[in-house]
């Protein structure tokens, strides 16, 4: 490229998004601040109990808790273990207890937390702890499998797709949003003491099929959830609804399953 053509190149258009100065949108740099993390560490080969370890990191206003965990793991202590995959709130791998509340580390912005205070990060409760922030998700997925999270139909298979009206689709729209991160189930106090309880996530995913007009296995799922460890163990504490990173109205979904069970019984 000659010097002549380079000068004739059009300038890059200005950004269409105006970020205010105090959020780092001005000419200056993104503001940075120091924050202290208290992370529950557990090494199954050495520890019998998890213990807290403190890390001080310099982070930016645009960072999330996951970025801080990355910084700690990549620059300070490589032995820190946690799950994450997509890092954008879709895969549901990085559910953890941040400042005592279950959230996704990739969806929790540091600027939304009180960075003047220590930020605590620990593994989700109620599932067997494997290492640091990693828990054994098997019991969780076992309950999920038991409610049969797949389309069950009877009769002849149609030659074309199974059509559904917009209203029928809307009926279970909320519960299709679940990403199986286990935030809800591991925020449930009933699940903490009784690991046999199916838990909110399983009920949400059962709800997704029970109220699907194309599905015919609703009765089978209701039978499973009518059990001692099913929906009747729900105490409507709303912990699950508050914890859900997808904003699913979980307690409402559980109530709807209870209602369906009552209608079936009478």
């Amino acid at each position: 490229m000659s010097a002549d053509t380079a000068t004739k190149e059009t300038a890059e258009p200005a950004s269409k998004v105006d970020i205010p100065d105090h959020l780092g949108g001005g000419a200056g740099e993104i503001p940075s601040f120091d924050c202290t993390f208290l992370i529950a560490r557990f090494n199954p080969e050495e520890d019998s109990e998890p213990h807290w370890e403190e890390y001080k990191v310099t982070m930016h206003g645009t960072d999330r808790v996951l970025d801080a965990l990355h910084k700690i793991k990549w620059e300070m202590d490589g032995s820190l273990s946690f799950r994450r995959s997509c890092a954008h709130g879709v895969c549901g791998s990085d559910a953890m207890r941040i400042n005592g509340r279950n959230r996704l580390a990739c969806k929790t912005l540091l600027k939304d937390l009180d960075t003047n205070k220590t930020i605590t990060v620990e593994a989700i409760k109620g599932l067997p702890l494997e290492k640091d922030l990693i828990v054994d998700m098997d019991p969780f997925f076992q309950s999920y499998r038991e409610i049969m999270p797949f389309l069950i139909t009877s009769g002849h298979e149609p030659t074309r797709e199974r059509l559904q009206s917009a209203e029928d689709r809307e009926r279970f729209d909320d519960t299709t949003k679940c990403i199986l991160c286990a935030s809800c189930t591991t925020s449930c106090p009933v699940f903490w003491t009784d690991g046999q309880y199916f838990g909110p996530a399983s009920i949400v995913n059962a709800h997704r099929f029970i109220f699907d007009s194309r599905d015919q296995g609703g009765d089978l799922r209701l039978e499973v959830l009518n059990d001692k460890e099913g929906v009747w163990r729900c105490r409507t504490t709303f912990n699950c609804t508050e914890a859900c990173p997808r904003g699913i109205q979980i307690t409402k979904a559980i109530a709807e399953v209870k209602q369906a069970l009552l209608e079936r019984a009478f």
């Binding site: 098997d138 019991p139 076992q142 309950s143 038991e146 046999q196 039978e223 499973v224 009518n226 059990d227 001692k228 460890e229 099913g230 009747w232 163990r233 069970l261 009552l262 019984a265």
Partner: peptide
């Protein structure tokens, strides 16, 4: 293998 209790098919809790 994670052990789950067998379903009892009881209506008691309802």
């Amino acid at each position: 293998e994670y052990d789950r209790h067998k379903t009892t098919r009881s209506q008691f809790e309802l």
